[in-house]
Each structure stands twice: as structure tokens, then as C-alpha cells.
Amino acid sequence: MSNRHLFSLFVGLVCAASVTALAQGGGPIPRRADGKPNLTGNWNGGIGLSHTVILEEHPGGFGIQAGKGLVIDPPTGVIPYQPWALAERNRRRDDANAYEDPVGHCEYYDVGRMHSFAQDIFHAGDSIVIHANQHNTRVVSLTRREHLPQGIRLWNGDPIGHWDGDTLVVESTNFNGRTRMAIGGDFYSPNAVLVERFRMVDANTINWTMTITDATVFTRPWTMTSAVPMRRLPPPQGGRDFDDEDTCHEGNVPLVHLKNVYDQARGIKPTGK
């Protein structure tokens, strides 16, 4: 079993454990003084492995749960890659190249991939801050109207938000093109424009979608959603846990195995220590 599969199993166990803890029922949307929905809270991710492994509908395999597709447009559920990009996606999907995935190096998740995990959202002043798994943090400005200069390139782009009724719309640009959308190798280029819509439907539910426009990689814009809606997690027993810490890189021992697989596939003597 590859380390990727081991990781997938681990993620599956974590997600399965969190399913039982979801807040039940709806209730009216909590609102801020300005009348806008207050998204503050702890929200589960898009429970299910499909988000971290493969975005399109796929059968189960050893270590991988079968998953429904997360692509809601185009209706085929297939990501509209240009031919070169599909070949590149499939190259990245190969186990022998798994070492290239920055997440294995404890580097940044893509915006969508963050939705695999619980997210702590707080809505303070003119910002919405999202803390997600590991060191994934986003600060969405609700006041800025122009993106950063083109020369500034960021792992998760430059997010600026506005309200469309009760829906928070977040547009991100200025990507560095280094993230992957899933272990399955899906990607977009630095030219991508991502538009996320966080629509609060009741006190405990947010529907999230993301539309990706990137003429460098795709033949048309496409839209994905999370495997399940974002659901509010109840406060942890005994109060909030302030004492955990993101230490992926500090304990990233398994990377050596991915590196050895990578080297072996290239006929190089494994260099891992």
C-alpha cells in the first residue's frame, strides 16, 4: 500500500469520526449588526475522501472510497481540461510522482482542498478569517475592491469578498500555480480566477461552490461543490481547544518514503536518510 493510500485511510477515519459530531437542525440565520449573515463558527469540511483524492466520480479501490463527483458544471461531471493539461493531471496522479504534491511536504492546500477539513471561520470587522487544517489560513477582505498587483503571487491567491444578498462571494486571483486541488493531481494555473459562493441556508448549514475560470488549463469555466454542505460543529466538550498546534512539517517523517519511491521510479538511488 502506498503512503498516499495510508494517508487516505487516515483522512477517512478522521472524517468518519467527525460525522457523528455535527449539529442537527437548522434555525434562522444568525446575523450581524449590518444584517449580513454571521458565518462565525466551526464548520465541518466536505466529509468523504473524494475531496482529497479525486474530484470526479470514481470507483472505490484499495484505500480509496468510491466517491460521487464534485463537479456540478459541466453536467458531465468531467473537468474540462485541455488535452495537454489532462495529460499533465494524469502524470501527477501516478503514484511514482506523489512526492511532487506540496501537501506531502506540509505545504499549502488549494482553496477547494481546504474544504475537506473542518474550518474555523470568524467574521470580525471587515475581514472574514478562515483557519483550516494544518497551517491553512485565509484572510478575506470585505472592503478591498481591487486585487493586488499582478507581480504578487500567492499560494491561495488574493481573496476579496462581497455580499450578494445572503451569499458571501469571494473572488481570488494572483495564484502562484503551485497548489494541487486533490491528491489525484487536479490543478489550475497562475492565471486562474476562483469565485467561491458561501450561501448560508440556515443557522447550521452553508452551501459552498467554487467556479474556476482558467483559459490556460481548461476549455471552459467549471464549478465544483463540497461533498456535503458545510455543517456547524457543536462547541467541543469542555470548551474550545486553544492548545493544539499545526506541526505538520516539524514531524514530517513519512516524506522520506515518498522521496524514495520518487527516486526509484526514476532509476535514482534513493536519497532519503
Binding site: C106, E107, V139, R144, L148, I152, L154, W155, D158, R178
Partner: peptide, 11 residues
């Protein structure tokens, strides 16, 4: 003049 940007040290 500038929001916080990013610096992925391990990268």
C-alpha cells in the same frame, strides 16, 4: 498599504 501575503518556508 499591504495585507499579509505568504511565505511558505518549507517550499
Amino acid at each position: 498599504d499591504t495585507p499579509i501575503l505568504d511565505y511558505e518556508c518549507t517550499a
